[in-house]
């Protein structure tokens, strides 16, 4: 059960992640805003309390791992890692600058704390399966968390990996589907309707649940639950662009180019909210 103090800390952390991501976009002028903001709460719960890791030893063998298969949400992860001390926080503001260690899409060779390179959609799923299976065969007490986009699941490789996860009972791997309802060209229901995702994953053999993916207590409950016989899949019912009203209300919010003034307005709003946690 999530106590009030921890809930407050996690909500604050989620806000800080959103602020960090927006600061990254502001520094470069553009970026994958919508999908970074939709997962901020899940990332906050993972790095805020659920996951075992050491910022001073990012490759610690028995750490828990996070694979953000929707690699374009890297800015949200970078903010979380910066806030947790994997590297100086200010570094995240070099997002997509020449020579940066913070590219658009997650890169394990560049960013301390990024557990896997992702970006070509679908591929992070199999990589996560391999990492979790490897840890299991090595007898390590660690879990792997995999974030997959709801547009990303158009990719066939996702379902190969899902089938494998369930069939081989890779129960130390937790799937999180960021069901923010939109992909680059529009609503997922219009582009390639994936139907009922919870039912699909349940049919594949997962212990599948649907929660409000922007609700900290629900995330905490789902992410602290340990798998028994079946691997866990959590369908995160989220809002693309969550936390910045103007982004939430913009239809085409996958990748956005804004002026510094607009970013400042978004930051002012988020920082105002932060005051409640002072």
């Amino acid at each position: 059960m999530l106590d009030n103090q921890l809930e407050k800390e996690l909500r604050r952390f989620a806000l800080e992640i959103r602020i960090g991501a927006v600061e990254e976009f502001k520094a470069r002028g553009f970026g994958h805003v919508g999908g970074s903001l939709s997962i901020a709460d899940a990332v906050a719960v993972l790095y805020g309390t659920v996951m075992k890791y050491d910022p001073k030893n990012p490759r610690m063998e028995d750490r828990d791992k996070l694979i953000c298969s929707k690699g374009h949400a890297g800015p949200a992860i970078y903010a979380a890692l910066g806030l947790k001390g994997f590297f100086p926080y200010e570094d995240i503001k070099t997002l997509n600058q020449p020579g940066t260690n913070f590219p658009s899409h997650c890169d394990r060779r560049k960013t301390p704390g990024i557990d896997m390179t992702t970006g070509s959609l679908g591929q992070g799923t199999s990589l996560a399966v391999g990492m979790a299976l490897g840890d299991k065969l090595k007898g390590r007490d660690s879990r792997t968390f995999l974030i997959v986009g709801d547009g990303e699941i158009n990719e066939g490789q996702v379902w190969e990996a899902a089938m494998f996860t369930a069939a081989k009972k890779v129960t130390n791997l937790v799937w999180l589907i960021d069901n923010n309802k939109k992909q680059l060209d529009g609503y997922t229901k219009d582009i390639l309707n994936s139907g009922d995702l919870r039912e699909k994953f349940a049919a594949f053999g997962f212990d599948a649940v649907r929660i409000d993916g922007n609700d900290i207590p629900q995330l905490y409950e789902a992410l602290t639950k340990k798998a028994e016989d079946k691997p866990i899949a959590i369908i995160l019912d989220t809002v693309k662009g969550k936390g910045v009203k103007e982004v939430e209300e913009t239809m085409a919010n996958h990748s956005m180019t804004m002026t510094g003034e607009v970013y400042d307005k978004w930051l002012a709003g988020l920082k105002e909210e932060l005051k409640a946690f002072a």
């Binding site: 063998e61 199999s126 990589l127 996560a128 391999g130 490897g134 066939g156 990996a161 494998f164 081989k168």
Partner: peptide, 25 residues
Amino acid sequence: DRAINCGIAEANMVGIAAGMSAVGF
């Protein structure tokens, strides 16, 4: 524990192998 039949899914197999490499295999 040492041999994994991934089924007829080569893309997934290569990804799993790469992931296992990342954790020491």
